[in-house]
Each structure stands twice: as structure tokens, then as C-alpha cells.
Amino acid sequence: MPILITACTKKKMGDAQVSAADIPAGPIEAVGSQWIAAISADQERTLAARLYQGGSHAESRRAAEDSGYPHLIVSAGLGLIAADAEVPNYAASVLAGEDDILAKLGDNPDASHWWRWLQGRSPFAQSLKTAILATDGPCLIALPRPYLDMIEADLLSLPEQVLDRVRLFCGAQAPAALAHLQMPYDDRLDGPDSPYRGTRSNFASRALRHFATRVLPGKEGHMVAQHTAAVQAALAGWTRPIRTSGIRKSDAELREILAAHWEAMGGRSTRMLRLLRDELGIACEQGRFAALIRDMREERNNVA
């Protein structure tokens, strides 16, 4: 039977019981040991499928429910976990932000180094290699590029005939060594003919759901070239979305808009960026937006 592997999400149900932000910086052994102790402590547990929230996880969960395939989740704080595992509510990521676990590592290891360390010590983690070897069907992996980079070495350690069963879904180009396994989804997934439209942040999960429910059935034993052709055929009649330029605003104008919506958005940068781009139609480059949010947070903290 095929299996699905998707990413954890920053947005979770309820408040985090442990956070990478609370771990003192230091070498990986020191930081990691404190993190393992924190997630291992007695505390409330929640099914992983319910813990993660947001559009990306909703698409992944729906793909698993509609296909009936086992669902595993790549977590930067827990390792590889099953969607039906009971886990603590935590805040840890390998993406920039206050819960970036990599920022705590004084010896500057990359995400793949942290992943290997975590996988070997987390009480919640299971082996990625073992999970893939345990199934004789395709392994469908939908991850943002930083998380795909994190597990790349694990995937490349698989026997060639097993690696050939992996199918990748990513909103960006996959690493060169894995690029031949990436299914050829493009922005037609967001076009007027597609019933799978959404935001760029959940592109990989939406592509996975389309493949798992519309392309793969009856083709489970096909080779990667055949699956690639099947995706291309499925998208052949779809048109691309019409792109419109967003409204331009000065930094002062953007700050005023963000301040007006700060409380309603809970001060969450992802929600406010989506508000600007998707609801208000305002153009704002990601780096510029991040700098504005950072400055506004610092000002609010100083006032508090």
C-alpha cells in the first residue's frame, strides 16, 4: 500500500507546552538533550492529526482520509511521527522565527544534522527508511523545500529500487539528486479549471491530494516516467491563472494597515501576509514584510 509523508505546521491546536524559544543556546548535544527532556516530560498528549492546523495540514489530512493511505508527518521537534500518534503540543521549526531550533545550536549544524540527531533520540520518532521499506507501494512525500533538504540524506540512503518508488511534491524545485522523482505540478493547479486551488504555502499538499486521489488509483505499480506522464495528461486541459499586480504601498502605509489588523490577526506574520496579499491585494516582498513585522514587534515589546 502507498504511504503519505507530509510536513508539520507552525499552527497547532491550543498553546505549546514546550518551545524551542525557551531552550538556552549551546552545542547540539546540550540543546538537544534539553529539548528531549522537555518533550518527554509528563504532559497532555494529542493525536498528531488533530494537533496540526492550517491549510497545508488540512489538505494532507484530507488526502489521507480520501485515499485511505497511512499518513506520516515530518516534525522538526519530534522526528518522523504517525498521524495517529499521541504527541505533546510543542513549538520547534527549522524555519526562521522565534521557535527556530537551528538558531539555538552554537556549533552551527544544518537542518539535516539536527534531523539525524533528533531521529536517533526522540521517543516519538520512527525510522523514515524503515517506514518506506515496510511498504511495497509508492511513497508520496509532500514537503516544503527546507524540510525536503532536511530528509534528503535519508532518502538517498535507500536502495535504488526503493528510492524509485518515491514521488515528490514541492512548491519549489527539489534537490538535484531527487529532481527526477518530483511530479510535474505547476501553477495550473491554481488556475480556473482546477478544483484544487489554494495558497502557495499549501501547494505541495494540494498536489499530493490530487495525485493520491485522481492520478495514482490503478497505477500504483507504474514507474516514475509513467506517473509523470499521467500528471501531465491530467493537467493538459487546465489553464494557468491570470496574475495581477498587487497595490503598492509605502512602509508607513503598510505599518498603519498592519497595526490596524494586529490584534485581529493575533500578531501572526503568516496571517497578516495572507491578509495583505490575498484579501487586500497589496504587494509586499517577503523580506520587506519580515523586516516591518520584526520592527513592529520590537516597538510593541519596548512599550510593554
Rank of each mutant, 00 (worst) to 15 (best):
A230V: 09
N202K: 06
V18H: 02
G198S: 07
A142W: 01
D107P: 01
Q17R: 14
R165W: 04
S245H: 13
I81N: 02
F211Y: 13
A252R: 15
D187K: 15
E59W: 08
P241Q: 07
G281E: 06
A63W: 00
D107E: 06
L178P: 01
T228C: 14
I282N: 06
G218D: 05
D295H: 11
F169C: 03
Y196V: 03
P27G: 12
K104P: 04
A83R: 00
I5N: 00
Q161P: 09
A229F: 10
I242F: 12
A21N: 10
H113E: 11
I282M: 07
A290R: 11
D190N: 15
E44Y: 09
A21Q: 12
P159K: 00
C139L: 04
L178G: 00
R255W: 05
L102I: 08
P159Q: 03
P146I: 07
L128E: 07
G198K: 03
D190T: 10
T213R: 05
S75R: 04
H180W: 09
A41C: 10
M150F: 04
R200I: 15
P70N: 05
D99T: 09
S40H: 07
A85K: 02
G281D: 04
K11L: 09
I5C: 01
R197Y: 02
P88R: 01
S60V: 01
M272H: 06
W114P: 03
E253W: 12
R277P: 06
V87N: 00
W238M: 13
A58R: 06
F289S: 03
H222A: 14
Q173L: 15
P123K: 04
L276S: 04
S205H: 12
I293E: 07
P184T: 05
I242N: 11
L208D: 01
P144I: 06
A91I: 08
S56M: 12
L168S: 02
W262E: 04
R116I: 08
L276Q: 02
D42A: 15
L280Q: 07
P217E: 10
D84G: 02
E65V: 00
K11R: 13
Y69F: 09
A96I: 15
G55S: 11
L216M: 07
N302K: 15
G55D: 11
P175D: 10
A85Q: 10
A176I: 12
L273Q: 13
Q232I: 03
A252I: 15
P88T: 08
F169H: 05
L276R: 02
L105D: 01
N89W: 07
A20K: 02
G68S: 02
A20G: 04
R167S: 06
T6C: 12
Q232L: 14
D149I: 06
G54A: 06
K12Q: 14
D187T: 14
G191A: 07
A82K: 13
E220P: 08
H222T: 10
I282F: 06
L258P: 03
G266N: 10
A252W: 11
A58Q: 05
L280P: 01
P2S: 03
V303C: 12
D278S: 13
Q286W: 14
I5G: 01
S205G: 13
A63D: 00
W262N: 08
I151C: 01
G287A: 12
Q182K: 11
K12R: 14
E29D: 15
A304I: 13
Q182T: 10
C284E: 03
K249A: 14
